[in-house]
Design a protein around this nucleic acid. Structure first.
Lengths: 329, 329
DNA sequence: TTGTAGGCGTTATCAC
DNA sequence: GTGATAACGCCTACAA
């Protein structure tokens, strides 16, 4: 099939011996078409390898049936599961997903949102913390997935960090640990996780913490744990604000000659792919990204249907994923 | 700005007191517009927060100025650097990048290519090995980035696996190792890397290999190294077909109580983000994804400009990234 | 340098 | 049921 220009409805109509309108009706699965003509049209579509032009569809139609997903960075893998959830809730309704991180079209657009606006998306999902420079029109249906910073008119669907911290504490208590440590950074999530951790742990154990200003990086994890161990060498279990910091903690422990989990148990947060690697085997708290995505999609659909509904906040319950880095005391 | 419907050129024209065409000319940076009118138009655009509709643009224009990038899976992080390179070479020409992995719009399209075809993209980049079920029209400008399976009419830009294997060997020889091992799987890349490795190593060292059928997974890396060490316990350095397998090798070594790099040096391939983590510190071969992306973008532009040019194959020279898992004998 | 008219491929609104 | 016909927002000759 050496196709020159893509086929149009006109081509299909001519080939099927019907009008352009009829083709359009078939495309939209209208029931008001005789089976005979429908078959003829479908046959022609097949033969011509016809494919509707999204440009023409969204220009002529009242809606673009497209949802834009803004990621902060393709390197933050958690979006993969989020997309799965979004897909589940959005594609049944025929919505197409378009993803972009902050960098994908820099040089063309100031922000990924710019591009989405040009595409006339019907709604936007922001994965993670929304940065203030996104400039999203007030009339655009919007949901924050995984972020805690609420934007007044936007729905929020996120993991329950406080509960997650509690789960981490309970796990360590169950294993018999009584001298616990927490390493964190200066983010809302870290603070929430810490609070939940301490609240659930304190009745049965002592908790010492080191919270470093700045991002929750591997480097920060190493430094924080170093400081914590220098002051409290008797700690037997450590909860890190996220997996990346936990990785930093692990390398710090290795450098100090401390074995994991024999000498110190370590638990992270987010259940990232790295944590699941056999070489790492990090016990972590699964933030249920798929669920978050599904919830976010549902909220967005509701908001698109009726933009005036009140903003809601949905918390998804996290759960423990036990691996090799935690063990009984 | 409670914007109801997005502004159109008509609105802009009316506000600036000019015709619609004039607005269009300004948008396209035409020099044949008086500074005065241009200023007026730009001002109106600002005030109305006008943004051209990509749908209308690609419908009316002769070209969509859009490039589709097909990823096999968002989990394979190497595409991140590839995108950087693609961006560098494509966006100067005003091309917009759209990415999709195999799953993004399943349920709507049979394959990501379907969606791109509907969008009337001007070209397609396939990241990694092209799967045969993609069904790309012969007339679509196409380049395979990072894959070795050539499609007749497509350009190929890839890392020079053979050279990379040689670099790995040379590194280990330089460190004084003489009993080398290789663990691989059944992929074209693995075979090439192995060949390059053996060819450069054999003069000065012995090489034993274990190649397992199937995918190059962490699990395969563990198994392969286990087999290799059982038969050849005297090996002091191991080259794995990729970082993931190397990770598997590392965990196998840990389980056997062998220290890295004191007892055994390990070197991977791809220089993935995981390898760069402090906790891992895996010496690896950088496949230069940014360069590959840049090259792929350039090839694609050339092919779009003249679809009849002969398909070319560009090999990018990889380079060593030495970290903690390799040391002198 | 500026304005006019036609068309891009599809949906939506009518008549028939 | 089916088929004209007018939008949709923009670009591109072409005319002025």
């Amino acid at each position: 099939m050496g196709d020159g220009k893509p086929a149009t409805i006109y081509d299909v109509a001519a080939r099927a011996g019907v009008s352009k309108s009829l083709v359009s009706l078939v495309l939209q699965r209208s029931p008001r078409v005789s089976d005979q003509r429908r078959a003829a049209v479908l046959k022609a579509i097949q033969e011509l390898d016809y494919r509707p032009s999204t440009a023409a569809v969204s220009l002529a139609g009242t809606r673009s049936r497209t949802i834009g997903v803004v990621l902060d960075d393709f390197r933050n893998q958690w979006f993969v599961d989020l997309l799965t959830g979004l897909r589940e809730s959005l594609q049944d309704q025929g919505h197409r997903l378009v993803v972009a991180d902050r960098f994908l079209n820099t040089g063309l657009d100031a922000s990924p949102v710019e591009g989405f606006l040009s595409m006339r998306v019907e709604g936007i999902v922001i994965a993670g913390e929304p940065t203030t420079d996104l400039a999203i029109p007030a009339s655009m249906p919007l949901v924050i997935a995984g972020g805690r910073v609420a934007i007044p008119r936007a729905d929020t669907v996120a993991n329950d960090d406080h509960a997650g911290g509690g789960i981490a504490a309970q796990h360590l208590l169950d294993l018999g640990h009584t001298r616990l440590g927490f390493v964190g950074a200066s983010s809302a999530a870290s603070a929430e996780r810490q609070a939940g951790f301490e609240q659930s742990a304190v009745p049965g154990a002592s908790v010492v913490t080191t919270v470093l200003p700045g991002e929750p990086t591997e480097e920060a994890g190493s430094r924080a744990l170093g400081i914590l161990l220098d002051e409290h060498p008797d700690v037997t279990a450590v909860f890190a604000a996220n997996d990346v910091m936990a990785l930093g903690a692990l390398s710090e422990l290795a450098e100090r000659g401390l074995r994991v989990p024999e000498d110190v148990s370590v638990i992270g947060y987010d259940d990232t792919p790295v944590a699941a690697m056999r070489y790492v085997g990090l016990t972590s708290i699964d933030d249920r990204s798929v669920e978050i995505g599904r919830g976010a999609g549902e909220r967005l659909l509701a908001r698109i249907a009726d933009p005036r509904i009140a903003a809601t906040e949905l918390l998804v319950e996290p759960r423990l994923v036990a691996r090799r880095t935690t063990a009984a005391r």
